[in-house]
């Protein structure tokens, strides 16, 4: 089991194009999902703040 795993990692380490694609691909996916999460979780302006602003002098 451990030998099979080592074989896969060894193959990956010997594949510079695979490493290049993987290292860019991981960041691309992670940052894309992070960005979506950040945008989706932005709260609207709180009602209390709106009331203060619109509340006159």
């Amino acid at each position: 089991m451990s030998e099979e795993q080592a074989g896969f990692i060894e193959k990956l380490m010997d594949n510079p194009i695979g490493l290049l694609v993987l290292s860019n691909g991981v960041l691309l996916v992670v940052y894309f999902l992070w960005g979506l999460f950040e945008i989706e979780t932005i709260a609207p302006i709180p009602d209390a703040l709106k009331a203060i602003i619109l509340g006159g002098k």
Binding site: I42, K50, L54
Partner: peptide, 20 residues
């Protein structure tokens, strides 16, 4: 701090703030 809003809502708030 960032809030989501719309241009219409922000414009209304800005007008009220400036009037003050």
């Amino acid at each position: 701090i960032v809030y989501s809003t719309s241009p219409d809502e922000f414009y209304k708030l800005a007008q009220a703030n400036w009037a003050k």
